[in-house]
Design a protein around this nucleic acid. Structure first.
Ligand SMILES: [Mn+2]
Ligand SMILES: [Mn+2]
Ligand SMILES: [Zn+2]
Ligand SMILES: [Zn+2]
Lengths: 142, 142
DNA sequence: GTACATTTGCGAATCATTCGCATTATTGTC
DNA sequence: GACAATAATGCGAATGATTCGCAAATGTAC
């Protein structure tokens, strides 16, 4: 495990939610180049030390998020108001996935699932509480 | 419904699988500009006439795919060998989603789920049967 | 420690998607 | 059907996340 990879992995482990490559880079404050961050993330995922999924959110657009691999595969909810992630815990799709696998004669090697909407905190404070209203895409159409 | 939007919608309806913006454009052979295709897709989705999801595949990279909205919300499987989609039929996640919604106090407005792996046809012909081996990303890391 | 195999930094591409704006369609109104 | 107001298009130029190429720096195996 090289210096850079270890740094990226601990950034993921320290975070309470999935991070984008930019998110990881910002927590390493220039410790290593962005290309290295991307390469390290790819490596960690191949090595089974991290998991990723591509999320589309109106404000942040399309970005790939990474989380340190935990003992069990898990899924997330993304709040479109405060843009935080909520850990939904251990994957409960095993049954459905193997059912579909059987019914359609497939060999499923991977599945992606995530929910989006408004988290409890934001729902309480009607209108939402944008935690990071700063950075935003130009009026992205969706 | 304008000319361009109607054209994009029928392209989606005629297709047996989700199409990327490029896929739609190619079936309209220059009938309208690519920016218009993107704008039409956004419009159709907002109008509830189409559904989309962002998929990450080693060969095609990250792309957003659109399908004409059917009577019921549905999910897909993407074969990483022939790169075709298999319609998994009506969504069966309702139970799990509302369960998670309750447990975590969320208001889920949308969910994304897709499976990837090797389809039956490709599994049969061991080694896979790349149907569109042409266009491919430069050796994308993942 | 020397030689070979990996990994990094940098800066320059890529590629899907979005913008800005001037030019057409559309649509509702006499 | 012509006319004004509004929305949609075409084009070409950005954007922004991610990837590449290659030389310099590290890590690893005798
Ligand atoms: Mn977001
Ligand atoms: Mn594909
Ligand atoms: Zn929230
Ligand atoms: Zn296949």
């Amino acid at each position: 495990m090289t210096r850079a990879r270890a740094a990226v992995l601990s950034a993921l482990e320290a975070a309470s939610e999935p991070l984008s490559a930019a998110g990881v880079a910002s927590r390493l404050t220039g410790a290593c180049d962005q290309a290295t961050v991307y390469r390290a993330l790819h490596h960690l995922e191949e090595a089974g030390l991290a998991e990723s999924f591509v999320l589309h959110c109106a404000m942040h657009g399309v970005e790939r998020y990474y989380a340190a691999a935990s003992s069990t595969h898990r899924h997330w909810f993304h709040c479109e108001s405060c843009h935080r992630f909520v850990d939904l815990g251990e994957c409960r799709l095993g049954g459905i996935v193997s059912e579909l696998e059987r019914e359609h004669g497939l060999r499923v090697t991977r599945h992606t699932m995530y929910l989006t909407g408004v988290c409890g905190d934001c729902a309480a404070i009607e209108g939402g509480r944008p935690r990071d209203g700063s950075r935003g895409r130009r009026g992205a159409a969706t």
